[in-house]
Design a protein around this nucleic acid. Structure first.
Lengths: 188, 188
DNA sequence: TCCTTATCCGGAATGCATTCCGCTTAGAAC
DNA sequence: GTTCTAAGCGGAATGCATTCCGGATAAGGA
């Protein structure tokens, strides 16, 4: 796997910029592959070569704003970063992730039509791995791997979007429920 | 809202039968709207009038096998039906739902591309309501509504499909994790 | 039995994601 | 500077879900 060719890198940047602009102007629904390609001045084939498909493009847009969040929970100050109790970190992490998810709900709604490989790789994997570590510290005997999935699942964009937008549920309640579940893990 | 016209009812049945047949023969991927319409001997417009869209058709196929399950947890014998402790019922229910979800994974994968209204109405609502009742009994003060969503979320088809098929996770582990979470709710 | 009309039907038309493939070019080797 | 080739490019072609709308028809009332 060699370094990306300079024309390819240039095109990637142009595409991302064009996509951001379109999303800002007309929202996520207005984001059609043909239009992004035209705005970026490349062919649609190029777009697919770089991002795989529509949801791959959405993930790329999300990932651009992803780095700082990962830094915060990996090496930032407590309670998110190291220093706090594992379950307290887990609660803080899930709360922060909920906020983040809500912020980018439309983009995530579009991204989550992706096929599993893309969907559960990348950022999901990072979140999952982080939780596995924290749960493993707090409850050495437990199936941290599956518990981490179970705690991440309630933050799926479609469910969140429905509850917050259609049912009038407040974000705080969702976080509260997750807190309860994490707290329940302590006593076993 | 009057009764369905007889020709409409006949077409609905023909469409469902044709769809079942195609799924049995070629799997869910082979299920194209045009093909179902042709096999049923109706126009595609009819199909859309009746089922809304592709995922609506998938839900209709699933719902056909849904009645008996609902009966089991509403009025069947314990531990699924009435008679057992609420949290024990909740564990039994989630375990049974997991089995059921895994059985129909392909159909659900197709159905869950649906927009929220269809996706979180119908069967989901029934499951959710049931859990809300059980959690309410076990923990009067808790936010049963959000906790129920959180416990149902890990059974989302895409996550389950990925973990079981790509990662080699056994179904029992997923159920075990849910058991742990439910058990954690007891001590609070 | 004959009207009336709300409901339903069919399938052509549309729009968009995705694929395909022959052409072009960056960049390494000499 | 020249050559070579893997990587990249464009955009026409394809396939499928979804929409549209003029024509048919079930069903209740006169």
């Amino acid at each position: 796997m060699r370094r990306e060719r300079t024309d390819a890198a240039r095109n990637r940047a142009k595409i991302l910029a064009a996509a951001e602009e379109i999303v800002a102007a007309r929202g996520v629904e207005g984001l059609s592959m043909a239009e992004v390609a035209a705005a970026a001045g490349v062919g649609v084939g190029t777009l697919y070569r770089r991002f795989g498909d529509r949801s791959g493009l959405a993930y790329a847009l999300i990932d651009a704003r992803e780095r700082e969040f990962q830094a915060a929970f990996l090496e930032g100050p407590p309670p998110l970063g190291p220093g706090a109790e594992p379950l307290e970190r887990a609660r803080a992490f899930l709360g922060a992730l909920a906020d983040r998810t809500i912020e980018q709900l439309d983009l995530l709604l579009m991204a989550e039509t992706a096929a599993p490989p893309a969907r559960f790789g990348g950022a999901y994997d990072a979140y999952h791995g982080h939780l596995v570590m924290l749960i493993g510290q707090a409850r050495p005997g437990a199936d941290a791997y599956c518990l981490a999935d179970a705690l991440l699942a309630p933050l799926a964009a479609p469910l969140l979007a429905h509850r917050l937008r259609e049912c009038g549920v407040a974000a705080g309640r969702v976080k509260g429920a997750l807190d309860d579940l994490v707290s329940g893990l302590a006593g076993a």
